[in-house]
Simulated scan of single mutants.
Amino acid sequence: MLEDKFRNHTIILASASPRRQQYFKEMGIPFKVQTIPVDEVYPLDLQGEQISNYLAVLKASQFKDKLKENDILVTSDTVVWHNGKSLAKPQDKSEAVAMLKTLSNDWHQVITSVCFTTPLSQKVVAHKTKVKFKELSEGEIRHYVDHYKPFDKAGGYGIQEWIGLIGIEEIQGSYSNVVGLPTHLVYKTLIAMVD
């Protein structure tokens, strides 16, 4: 039984994201949610995977000295990387529209880093997925931003929402990674840690 594998450990998912929590449920991994807010600020010389790695570790650092012996803390961060630039969560409607206009008719990378922390160790894994948008019309972009308000999503979009259904032509890599969690890597890493 999968539950038996985890019976001697407490998995703490430090994420308020309903999508990440749902993936943990669907993977059959018992977990509890605990979050500590953090300012997601990183050194400006970091690029791509370095940013998501740094932020995943930064989120874990908030739990320093709070973990018990058998706890495994899982923190993560997702970055949308396009033309040498990180597209973070848009601050408002106009920024979300501008982001989608730059992603239109082009490839970008979605990078998710996941940090696994115990009182004695820390391990970071990351996955990159390439995503290609069709040419999005102004009307499609505005419809999406008005109705879905993607202000909590890196790059200003959620692949599982309307814009993903009508706009994404091609994907190379893990789909769940674009949603916000490379489930295959998370499962593999946790199983190795509890075995």
Rank of each mutant, 00 (worst) to 15 (best):
residue 90 P to W: 10
residue 91 Q to Y: 08
residue 91 Q to H: 11
residue 91 Q to E: 06
residue 91 Q to G: 15
residue 91 Q to C: 06
residue 91 Q to V: 01
residue 92 D to E: 10
residue 92 D to Y: 05
residue 92 D to A: 06
residue 92 D to S: 06
residue 93 K to P: 02
residue 94 S to Q: 12
residue 95 E to Q: 14
residue 95 E to H: 04
residue 95 E to F: 00
residue 96 A to Y: 08
residue 96 A to H: 06
residue 98 A to Y: 05
residue 99 M to Q: 08
residue 99 M to T: 03
residue 100 L to I: 02
residue 101 K to G: 05
residue 101 K to F: 00
residue 101 K to H: 03
residue 101 K to M: 06
residue 102 T to K: 15
residue 102 T to M: 13
residue 102 T to A: 13
residue 102 T to V: 11
residue 104 S to D: 09
residue 106 D to K: 11
residue 106 D to M: 01
residue 106 D to N: 12
residue 106 D to A: 13
residue 106 D to I: 01
residue 108 H to F: 15
residue 109 Q to H: 09
residue 109 Q to W: 05
residue 109 Q to K: 14
residue 110 V to M: 04
residue 110 V to H: 11
residue 111 I to Q: 14
residue 112 T to I: 15
residue 112 T to S: 14
residue 113 S to F: 00
residue 113 S to W: 08
residue 113 S to H: 10
residue 114 V to N: 03
residue 114 V to R: 11
residue 116 F to H: 05
residue 117 T to C: 09
residue 117 T to N: 08
residue 118 T to F: 01
residue 118 T to L: 00
residue 119 P to W: 00
residue 119 P to L: 00
residue 119 P to V: 01
residue 120 L to D: 10
residue 120 L to M: 11
residue 122 Q to L: 13
residue 122 Q to S: 14
residue 122 Q to F: 00
residue 123 K to S: 14
residue 124 V to I: 15
residue 125 V to G: 02
residue 125 V to M: 07
residue 126 A to H: 12
residue 126 A to K: 03
residue 127 H to E: 15
residue 127 H to I: 07
residue 128 K to D: 04
residue 129 T to R: 08
residue 129 T to W: 03
residue 132 K to S: 05
residue 133 F to W: 00
residue 134 K to Y: 02
residue 134 K to F: 10
residue 135 E to S: 03
residue 135 E to Q: 12
residue 136 L to Q: 07
residue 137 S to H: 11
residue 137 S to T: 15
residue 137 S to A: 02
residue 138 E to R: 05
residue 140 E to Q: 13
residue 140 E to Y: 01
residue 140 E to T: 10
residue 142 R to F: 01
residue 143 H to L: 12
residue 144 Y to S: 04
residue 144 Y to T: 05
residue 144 Y to P: 08
residue 146 D to Y: 02
residue 146 D to S: 05
residue 148 Y to C: 04
residue 149 K to M: 13
residue 149 K to R: 08
residue 150 P to V: 03
residue 150 P to A: 10
residue 151 F to R: 05
residue 151 F to G: 14
residue 151 F to M: 10
residue 151 F to D: 01
residue 152 D to N: 13
residue 153 K to G: 14
residue 154 A to R: 00
residue 155 G to F: 04
residue 156 G to R: 02
residue 157 Y to M: 05
residue 157 Y to V: 09
residue 158 G to H: 09
residue 158 G to W: 03
residue 159 I to T: 12
residue 159 I to L: 11
residue 159 I to M: 11
residue 160 Q to H: 13
residue 160 Q to I: 01
residue 161 E to L: 00
residue 163 I to F: 08
residue 163 I to N: 14
residue 166 I to D: 06
residue 166 I to T: 15
residue 167 G to E: 11
residue 169 E to D: 08
residue 170 E to C: 04
residue 171 I to P: 02
residue 171 I to Y: 06
residue 171 I to F: 01
residue 171 I to Q: 12
residue 173 G to M: 08
